[in-house]
Write a protein that binds this DNA or RNA. Sequence first.
DNA 1: CGCGGGGTTGACGCACATCAAAGAGAGTGG
DNA 2: CCACTCTCTTTGATGTGCGTCAACCCCGCG
Lengths: 245, 245
Amino acid sequence: MCLSRVSVPVSGRNAEVDCKNCGLDALCELLEYGDGTVELPQGVLLRRQPVTRGETIFQSGSPFCSFFAVKSGSFKTVMVPPHGQEKVIGFHLPGEMVGTDGVAGDAYTCTARALESSLICELRLDQLPQVGASKLELQSRIISILGQEVAFSHKLNVALICQSSEQRLAAFILSISSRINERGLSGEDFRLSMSRSDIASYLGLASETVSRTLMKLRKLGVIKIRNKHVQMLAPDALEGLANGV
Amino acid sequence: MCLSRVSVPVSGRNAEVDCKNCGLDALCELLEYGDGTVELPQGVLLRRQPVTRGETIFQSGSPFCSFFAVKSGSFKTVMVPPHGQEKVIGFHLPGEMVGTDGVAGDAYTCTARALESSLICELRLDQLPQVGASKLELQSRIISILGQEVAFSHKLNVALICQSSEQRLAAFILSISSRINERGLSGEDFRLSMSRSDIASYLGLASETVSRTLMKLRKLGVIKIRNKHVQMLAPDALEGLANGV
DNA sequence: CGCGGGGTTGACGCACATCAAAGAGAGTGG
DNA sequence: CCACTCTCTTTGATGTGCGTCAACCCCGCG
């Protein structure tokens, strides 16, 4: 059923998600298996492009052209307030979309940067041919993707505003873990690819506080953590901490 | 050009936006003035429905069926975390959309409640007939609306995380003011329809801190504020405070 | 005119930021 | 394989912004 779509065995540290677990798959699938009348021009769908650690795939203000999906590795998106320094507004794990914020205007509103060497799939919306019936379906899938982003952002706001550092970090670990799980990888035992200061910026804390609070969670026995390697010991207890009980 | 779309003169305290300044207009317009082949069934587009103060127009978890646009008055959207109390995640002023978070799943993820007696337009997406070509256009406008929401949420996160109470409130006042302006009403002199504790919940502060900080902004001479009535005195200085200079 | 809920103001404590410095990893070159 | 460096992480000491508790005030409403 999935001939041309790639499926590479998990390779330890930098595992790839399978296409069927990728957020872009609803679109990929449609483009290739639609009503058969569609002939995609070259270069509309670019698969498994390598990106090196620290590389920027699009910049805030540059013209919107593509959705991206993380195939392996991970990314952060950052915004630069007028007078201030970069703030991390999102992390993107394998199977997740990047670049959706640009779809309304003509430009991306944030900058996306690889946290490690990664593979990324790119769908060039600007070069997509007009294809009638299947375009309808394509659009409604895009609507669904965007709707999920809106709902996720709302949840995020609730999780960050008005929470203690312990609650934020417990919620953060749980969120990363469940996102990894959703894509068919192990959410019990994983690697945090981002630095403590990236986490700090994302959660609105100081990096020292992130460090201290992670140690605290370890002492409480709910997680095992050494450098970037995390193991969930008591997800339920963690959930309790995140919800403040 | 705009025969059936309503346009009512501004009436002091509870002014209506003109349709041409409404976020839903891109859709309304299309539905009525499209390619002429569209016959809308009754009850797809419900205009200027009255809502009383405190009334809920949809609830978190209830099935998604409609987009709403605020015609006059204002709304807040709230989420209830598993163990905790309601948190305000958004305010919706005349001309703005409500309910977009439900489009991806089958249910709304938050609850929308009127802050004052209001008028609201409802577009029942679940009852929208399948209409070929114009449906394409409809969808791409929905995509645009959702994309704006995503971008707005990102900006909001940046504005809230890691900012002092003074910065948050300065940014909040500026944001409300410019949103009022954008819809063709006066953003220089307006009424904050939400309570101090709603603002506090939205900004992640205590209501006492909101009160204190607003007084501070008044003493600094950048705004005039008495109860819910706000006048902008020095928008540039306010901008400076918001950006932390 | 009296009541009630939202708004303001003050006192105090705590959680987290900030500053500082030492420790641990990952990568580099000898 | 080992020294070296650079960056990230951890840990400690100290200060402060904001939350919390409590009292009072004021406006709107019946």
